[in-house]
């Protein structure tokens, strides 16, 4: 079984496209759509990489990331943030909270694949 990626995103068509690209590349993709329970989901079975959207129902990706970095077992877990807002302050906030990488929507399939491979290998 390939390495596990947890995609936390609430847009169904984005979930479908990213899941397809990564699965085809050999990754095992799990998805989760709710911000409120996302941190629990990560802790219950930590994946090799989390792809985390910022704007989620219930709770923002920033808050989830803060939680993950505050817990011993997920402190070093690679987390790649996805956001529709690419302003410097958003990037700085993500990196300050401990994001491993930050990607602005819309992105290319090649870009997301390359980043996933790099983050898990690194």
């Amino acid at each position: 079984m390939g390495k596990r990626v947890l995609l936390i995103e609430d847009e169904p068509n984005i979930i479908e496209a990213i899941s397809f690209i990564l699965t085809r590349d050999g990754w095992t993709v799990h998805t989760h759509e709710d911000g409120e329970t996302a941190a629990e989901r990560v802790r219950s079975r930590p994946p090799d990489l989390v792809i985390l959207d910022v704007m989620l129902p219930g709770r923002s990706g920033y808050d989830i990331l803060r939680d993950l970095r505050g817990a011993e077992d997920t402190r070093a877990l690679p987390v790649m943030m996805l956001t529709a807002r690419g302003q410097t302050k958003d990037r700085e906030m993500a990196m300050e909270l401990g994001a491993t990488h930050f990607m602005t929507k819309p992105f290319s399939n090649a870009e997301i694949l390359e980043n996933v491979r790099t983050l898990v290998a690194g």
Binding site: I18, F107, N109
Partner: peptide, 27 residues
């Protein structure tokens, strides 16, 4: 604007898959 960016992201990613060929008619 957030909805526009999210939808464009989905279209861009999905269109790329189709151009490259999904390899499965159902997909």
């Amino acid at each position: 604007l957030h909805q526009v960016v999210s939808t464009v992201t989905s279209i861009r990613s999905t269109a790329s898959i189709l151009v490259e060929g999904a390899g499965d008619r159902d997909w």
